[in-house]
Simulated assay, not measured.
Amino acid sequence: MSRALVLFAHPLDDSFSAALHRTTVETLTARGWQVDDCDLYAEGFNPVLSAEERRLYHDTTRNIAPVHGYVDRLRAADALVLVFPVWNYGFPAILKGYFDRVFLPGVSFDLREGRVAPALTNIQKLAAITTYGGTRLRSFLAGDPPRRIVKRTMSRIAQAGKTRYLALYDMNNVTKDRTSAFLSQVRSEMEAF
């Protein structure tokens, strides 16, 4: 059975992001995936990289100790699905902190003679499901960092054969029809994932 790690990063359980999260988990489970549902807020994940963690960052024999449980979950996954809102053209701080603390040398990448080599080769599929307050044009003009990081950087370190980036833009002006259509799109994508 394939295992998916779903990382969810939104503090409100009645948000549209929470509805996207529920749809994702329910659909993957119904399709036979073993889902490790990691709600970073509900789990009380601490996103702050401590001074000691930074000192040990490149020491691959000791750097995972503070987050070993999260590293174990990431290493056990065949697929990684991120569900988050885009805030200020970036990831929510808790998700960025997860990347800073868990995507470590020896975990998500290796340094070989000063060059980065992928290390998350267990991740065969990668998806991001997100919402933006602004329009697609405004996001494009700002460089759309989350899209670039998922599509260019994360897919490379995971060497994912399949990468999907599903985004609903302009949440500030969204209609019920658009949110319903996006939920249906997410359901369809996760059924085919």
Rank of each mutant, 00 (worst) to 15 (best):
K162G: 04
G44M: 10
R136S: 06
F84S: 00
A93F: 14
E191A: 15
G44I: 08
S180N: 11
A9V: 09
D13R: 07
A76N: 04
L28S: 11
F45R: 04
P118E: 04
E191C: 14
M190H: 03
H68N: 12
L74N: 00
N63P: 08
Y41E: 11
L49E: 13
S50F: 11
L137I: 06
I64E: 14
T130G: 07
T135L: 03
P105W: 07
A51F: 15
R31V: 10
V83F: 02
D110K: 14
L7H: 04
Q185G: 00
P66E: 15
V107R: 03
W87N: 06
H68F: 12
D36G: 04
P118K: 11
T60Y: 07
T153Q: 11
R62C: 08
E52I: 03
F91G: 05
N63T: 10
L20H: 02
Y57F: 15
E52H: 02
E191W: 09
L111G: 02
R136T: 01
A19M: 13
Y89G: 03
T130R: 01
E43H: 13
R148L: 10
A9C: 02
T179G: 13
K176N: 03
A9M: 07
T175P: 09
T60P: 08
Q34A: 15
D78V: 03
A30T: 13
D72A: 11
Q124R: 12
A127D: 04
W87P: 09
Y169P: 04
E43M: 13
G106H: 13
R75D: 00
Y132F: 10
A117I: 09
I64P: 01
N172L: 14
A18P: 06
T24S: 01
H10T: 05
M190D: 14
T29Y: 11
L28V: 02
D100G: 06
S184L: 11
A18I: 02
Q124E: 10
D36P: 00
T179I: 14
A167P: 02
V71H: 09
F182P: 00
C38W: 14
T131V: 10
A128T: 07
A142L: 02
A192D: 15
L120V: 10
R112S: 10
R147I: 00
G97E: 09
D144R: 06
L183W: 10
A119F: 02
R156C: 08
L183Q: 09
